[in-house]
Amino acid sequence: MVWKRGGLVAEARTGGQRVALLHLDESQPVVLEGPAAAIWELIDGKRSEQDIWAELEATFEDVLGEMQAQAELFLASLEARRLIEPANAA
């Protein structure tokens, strides 16, 4: 699966550490920090989920081995809020 950022999402960021997002149909922005912001930076419409897992594993120390499962849940949450969408969607 390849994800891209939603077409109706406005964003502002400070480097790669903190990202504020607003879906233009909503009235309240959300903020991503740390690993959440890092994952957002990797969602570019080109990287597959496997590419994202690989970059996360190369960057973060995952003591409990739950990184991929938690990242999958996070992507599902982003999709539920329409902040991302499948890159191959019509």
């Binding site: 550490q17 959300v30 903020v31 991503l32 690993p35 890092a38 996360l56 960057t59 973060f60 996070f74």
Partner: peptide, 28 residues
């Protein structure tokens, strides 16, 4: 990001082993 915050230094700090934590969406 780290380099931009350490503008007085030319040393490049390598980010490896940053502790993973559960990614969450925070409502502003």
């Amino acid at each position: 990001e780290i380099e931009s915050k350490e503008s007085g230094f030319s040393r490049r700090r390598v980010v490896k082993g940053v502790a993973w934590s559960v990614p969450v969406i925070v409502t502003a």
